[in-house]
Protein backbone atom coordinates (compact mmCIF):
# COMPACT_ATOMS: atom_id res chain seq x y z
CA UNK A 1 0.00 0.00 0.00
CA UNK A 2 1.17 3.52 -0.77
CA UNK A 3 2.42 5.25 2.37
CA UNK A 4 3.71 8.51 0.95
CA UNK A 5 2.77 10.22 -2.22
CA UNK A 6 4.15 13.57 -3.34
CA UNK A 7 2.58 15.06 -6.45
CA UNK A 8 3.86 17.97 -8.46
CA UNK A 9 6.07 19.38 -5.71
CA UNK A 10 7.66 22.66 -6.82
CA UNK A 11 10.00 24.86 -4.83
CA UNK A 12 11.73 28.08 -5.90
CA UNK A 13 14.43 30.09 -4.17
CA UNK A 14 15.01 33.62 -5.48
CA UNK A 15 14.94 32.78 -9.18
CA UNK A 16 16.17 29.20 -8.80
CA UNK A 17 13.76 26.37 -9.43
CA UNK A 18 15.06 23.84 -6.92
CA UNK A 19 12.16 21.42 -7.45
CA UNK A 20 10.08 21.37 -10.58
CA UNK A 21 6.88 19.34 -10.52
CA UNK A 22 8.34 16.36 -8.66
CA UNK A 23 6.39 13.17 -7.99
CA UNK A 24 7.64 10.67 -5.44
CA UNK A 25 5.83 7.67 -3.99
CA UNK A 26 6.86 5.20 -1.34
CA UNK A 27 5.01 2.05 -0.29
CA UNK A 28 4.76 0.76 3.24
CA UNK A 29 8.04 -0.90 4.26
CA UNK A 30 9.70 0.01 0.98
CA UNK A 31 13.24 1.41 0.75
CA UNK A 32 13.41 3.93 -2.07
CA UNK A 33 16.64 5.58 -3.20
CA UNK A 34 16.69 9.25 -4.16
CA UNK A 35 19.84 10.08 -6.09
CA UNK A 36 21.13 12.80 -8.37
CA UNK A 37 23.93 15.33 -8.86
CA UNK A 38 24.91 17.89 -6.25
CA UNK A 39 22.26 20.56 -6.07
CA UNK A 40 19.63 18.44 -7.82
CA UNK A 41 17.11 19.17 -5.04
CA UNK A 42 17.28 16.03 -2.88
CA UNK A 43 17.64 17.77 0.49
CA UNK A 44 15.11 20.39 -0.58
CA UNK A 45 12.61 17.63 -1.33
CA UNK A 46 13.22 16.13 2.12
CA UNK A 47 12.61 19.58 3.61
CA UNK A 48 9.34 19.92 1.72
CA UNK A 49 8.14 16.45 2.69
CA UNK A 50 9.02 16.79 6.38
CA UNK A 51 7.44 20.25 6.64
CA UNK A 52 10.63 22.30 7.07
CA UNK A 53 9.90 24.12 3.81
CA UNK A 54 6.56 25.00 2.31
CA UNK A 55 6.43 23.95 -1.37
CA UNK A 56 5.23 26.62 -3.80
CA UNK A 57 3.02 24.06 -5.50
CA UNK A 58 2.11 20.40 -5.18
CA UNK A 59 0.56 18.09 -2.64
CA UNK A 60 1.98 15.61 -0.16
CA UNK A 61 -0.22 12.72 0.92
CA UNK A 62 0.64 10.45 3.83
CA UNK A 63 -1.54 7.40 4.32
CA UNK A 64 -3.89 9.00 1.83
CA UNK A 65 -4.31 12.22 3.81
CA UNK A 66 -3.15 15.58 2.48
CA UNK A 67 -0.51 16.99 4.85
CA UNK A 68 -1.24 20.53 3.70
CA UNK A 69 0.70 23.03 5.80
CA UNK A 70 1.15 20.68 8.75
CA UNK A 71 4.17 21.67 10.86
CA UNK A 72 7.27 19.50 11.31
CA UNK A 73 6.36 18.21 14.79
CA UNK A 74 2.81 17.36 13.72
CA UNK A 75 4.19 15.33 10.80
CA UNK A 76 6.59 13.64 13.20
CA UNK A 77 3.65 12.61 15.34
CA UNK A 78 2.07 11.00 12.28
CA UNK A 79 5.21 8.88 11.92
CA UNK A 80 7.58 10.87 9.69
CA UNK A 81 11.21 11.05 10.90
CA UNK A 82 14.53 12.07 9.37
CA UNK A 83 18.28 12.28 9.80
CA UNK A 84 20.36 15.21 8.58
CA UNK A 85 23.12 15.59 5.99
CA UNK A 86 25.31 17.11 8.68
CA UNK A 87 25.43 15.13 11.87
CA UNK A 88 23.82 16.92 14.77
CA UNK A 89 24.82 15.20 17.97
CA UNK A 90 25.41 16.94 21.29
CA UNK A 91 28.96 16.72 22.60
CA UNK A 92 29.18 15.40 26.14
CA UNK A 93 25.81 13.63 26.08
CA UNK A 94 25.73 9.85 26.11
CA UNK A 95 24.17 7.66 23.45
CA UNK A 96 21.38 6.70 25.84
CA UNK A 97 20.65 10.37 26.62
CA UNK A 98 20.33 11.16 22.93
CA UNK A 99 17.71 8.49 22.49
CA UNK A 100 15.91 9.46 25.68
CA UNK A 101 15.67 13.12 24.68
CA UNK A 102 14.43 12.13 21.23
CA UNK A 103 11.84 9.86 22.84
CA UNK A 104 10.64 12.54 25.27
CA UNK A 105 10.60 15.27 22.64
CA UNK A 106 8.45 13.06 20.49
CA UNK A 107 6.04 12.11 23.22
CA UNK A 108 5.54 15.37 25.08
CA UNK A 109 2.24 16.98 24.30
CA UNK A 110 3.71 20.38 23.54
CA UNK A 111 5.05 20.72 27.10
CA UNK A 112 7.94 22.75 28.44
CA UNK A 113 11.54 22.24 27.31
CA UNK A 114 12.28 21.30 30.93
CA UNK A 115 10.34 18.08 30.34
CA UNK A 116 13.37 16.91 28.41
CA UNK A 117 15.83 17.52 31.22
CA UNK A 118 17.59 14.33 32.06
CA UNK A 119 17.59 14.73 35.82
CA UNK A 120 14.94 12.76 37.63
CA UNK A 121 13.62 9.31 37.11
CA UNK A 122 13.58 7.40 33.91
CA UNK A 123 10.31 5.64 33.47
CA UNK A 124 10.62 1.87 32.94
CA UNK A 125 8.74 2.18 29.64
CA UNK A 126 11.26 4.80 28.50
CA UNK A 127 14.11 2.51 29.43
CA UNK A 128 12.49 -0.32 27.50
CA UNK A 129 12.09 1.74 24.37
CA UNK A 130 15.66 3.02 24.55
CA UNK A 131 17.06 -0.47 25.16
CA UNK A 132 15.08 -1.92 22.30
CA UNK A 133 16.55 0.58 19.85
CA UNK A 134 20.06 0.19 21.28
CA UNK A 135 19.79 -3.57 20.89
CA UNK A 136 18.46 -3.33 17.37
CA UNK A 137 21.35 -1.11 16.33
CA UNK A 138 23.99 -3.13 18.19
CA UNK A 139 24.67 -0.16 20.48
CA UNK A 140 24.02 -1.69 23.92
CA UNK A 141 27.73 -1.63 24.81
CA UNK A 142 28.01 2.01 23.76
CA UNK A 143 24.91 3.25 25.61
CA UNK A 144 26.75 5.05 28.39
CA UNK A 145 29.54 6.50 26.26
CA UNK A 146 29.50 10.18 25.33
CA UNK A 147 28.85 10.58 21.62
CA UNK A 148 32.15 12.43 21.15
CA UNK A 149 34.01 9.20 21.92
CA UNK A 150 32.30 7.29 19.12
CA UNK A 151 33.59 6.48 15.66
CA UNK A 152 31.83 8.24 12.80
CA UNK A 153 29.99 5.04 11.87
CA UNK A 154 28.66 4.56 15.39
CA UNK A 155 27.63 8.22 15.47
CA UNK A 156 25.55 7.62 12.35
CA UNK A 157 23.82 4.74 14.11
CA UNK A 158 22.96 7.06 17.01
CA UNK A 159 21.37 9.48 14.53
CA UNK A 160 19.42 6.59 13.10
CA UNK A 161 18.41 5.50 16.61
CA UNK A 162 17.13 8.97 17.32
CA UNK A 163 14.82 8.66 14.35
CA UNK A 164 13.77 5.07 15.08
CA UNK A 165 12.85 5.67 18.71
CA UNK A 166 9.92 7.75 17.54
CA UNK A 167 8.60 4.52 15.95
CA UNK A 168 8.19 6.16 12.56
CA UNK A 169 6.33 4.69 9.60
CA UNK A 170 8.69 6.55 7.28
CA UNK A 171 12.28 7.76 7.71
CA UNK A 172 14.20 10.13 5.44
CA UNK A 173 17.93 9.46 5.54
CA UNK A 174 20.17 12.18 4.06
CA UNK A 175 23.63 10.77 3.19
CA UNK A 176 23.92 8.42 6.18
CA UNK A 177 27.13 6.85 4.84
CA UNK A 178 29.11 9.93 3.81
CA UNK A 179 32.59 9.99 5.30
CA UNK A 180 32.38 6.34 6.33
CA UNK A 181 34.99 3.95 5.01
CA UNK A 182 34.02 0.80 3.13
CA UNK A 183 34.03 -1.39 6.24
CA UNK A 184 31.97 1.05 8.30
CA UNK A 185 29.53 1.53 5.43
CA UNK A 186 29.03 -2.22 5.10
CA UNK A 187 28.38 -2.44 8.85
CA UNK A 188 25.87 0.41 8.92
CA UNK A 189 24.13 -0.98 5.80
CA UNK A 190 23.79 -4.40 7.47
CA UNK A 191 22.48 -2.86 10.71
CA UNK A 192 20.00 -0.75 8.80
CA UNK A 193 18.78 -3.80 6.88
CA UNK A 194 18.33 -5.77 10.10
CA UNK A 195 16.44 -2.94 11.84
CA UNK A 196 14.25 -2.50 8.76
CA UNK A 197 13.42 -6.21 8.70
CA UNK A 198 12.18 -6.05 12.29
CA UNK A 199 10.10 -2.93 11.93
CA UNK A 200 7.15 -1.63 10.02
CA UNK A 201 9.05 1.26 8.54
CA UNK A 202 9.65 2.65 5.05
CA UNK A 203 12.83 4.52 4.12
CA UNK A 204 13.69 7.16 1.56
CA UNK A 205 17.47 7.18 1.19
CA UNK A 206 19.60 9.96 -0.26
CA UNK A 207 23.18 8.78 -0.77
CA UNK A 208 26.08 9.30 -3.18
CA UNK A 209 27.57 5.89 -2.35
CA UNK A 210 26.03 4.06 -5.27
CA UNK A 211 27.12 0.64 -4.01
CA UNK A 212 25.21 1.19 -0.77
CA UNK A 213 22.15 2.35 -2.74
CA UNK A 214 22.32 -0.83 -4.82
CA UNK A 215 22.46 -2.93 -1.67
CA UNK A 216 19.53 -1.26 0.04
CA UNK A 217 17.10 -0.05 -2.64
CA UNK A 218 15.12 -2.07 -5.13
CA UNK A 219 13.83 1.13 -6.63
CA UNK A 220 15.39 4.55 -7.16
CA UNK A 221 14.25 7.96 -8.32
CA UNK A 222 16.78 10.26 -9.99
CA UNK A 223 16.59 14.04 -9.73
CA UNK A 224 18.53 16.45 -11.94
CA UNK A 225 17.99 20.20 -11.90
CA UNK A 226 14.91 19.69 -9.74
CA UNK A 227 13.19 17.29 -12.14
CA UNK A 228 12.74 13.54 -12.06
CA UNK A 229 14.81 12.25 -14.99
CA UNK A 230 14.42 8.53 -14.28
CA UNK A 231 12.80 6.13 -11.85
CA UNK A 232 12.36 2.38 -11.57
CA UNK A 233 14.33 -0.71 -10.55
CA UNK A 234 17.79 0.34 -9.33
CA UNK A 235 19.88 -1.69 -11.75
CA UNK A 236 17.84 -0.62 -14.78
CA UNK A 237 17.96 3.05 -13.80
CA UNK A 238 21.72 2.97 -13.24
CA UNK A 239 22.12 1.72 -16.82
CA UNK A 240 20.01 4.58 -18.19
CA UNK A 241 22.21 6.75 -20.46
CA UNK A 242 20.72 10.00 -19.12
CA UNK A 243 21.49 8.92 -15.56
CA UNK A 244 24.99 7.84 -16.48
CA UNK A 245 25.63 11.18 -18.10
CA UNK A 246 24.10 13.39 -15.42
CA UNK A 247 25.06 11.50 -12.30
CA UNK A 248 27.52 8.68 -12.73
CA UNK A 249 29.66 10.47 -15.27
CA UNK A 250 30.54 7.26 -17.03
CA UNK A 251 31.21 7.85 -20.68
CA UNK A 252 31.14 4.77 -22.75
Amino acid sequence: MTLLEARGVTKRFAGIVALDDVDLACDEREIVGLIGPNGAGKTTLFNCLTGVLRPDAGRVLFEGKDLGALAVHRRARLGIARTFQRMELFAGMTVRDHLLVADRAHRRAGGLPSDLVLRGRIHPSERDRVDRVLAQLGLLDDGDRPVDALSLGTGRLVELGRALITEPRLVFLDEPFSGLDRIETDEVVATLQAAHAERDVAIVLVEHDVTAVQHLCERVVVLDYGRVIASGPTDTVLEDPAVRRAYLGVTE
Binding site: P37, Q85, G179, V210, Y247, G249
Partner: peptide, 13 residues
Protein backbone atom coordinates in the same frame (compact mmCIF):
# COMPACT_ATOMS: atom_id res chain seq x y z
CA UNK B 1 38.48 12.99 1.83
CA UNK B 2 37.97 14.46 -1.57
CA UNK B 3 34.89 12.37 -2.31
CA UNK B 4 32.88 13.41 0.74
CA UNK B 5 29.39 14.46 -0.34
CA UNK B 6 30.25 14.64 -4.03
CA UNK B 7 28.22 13.01 -6.80
CA UNK B 8 30.20 10.35 -8.71
CA UNK B 9 30.30 12.50 -11.85
CA UNK B 10 32.05 15.29 -9.92
CA UNK B 11 34.50 12.92 -8.22
CA UNK B 12 35.57 11.76 -11.66
CA UNK B 13 36.11 15.32 -12.82
Amino acid sequence: ELSLGLAPVIIGE
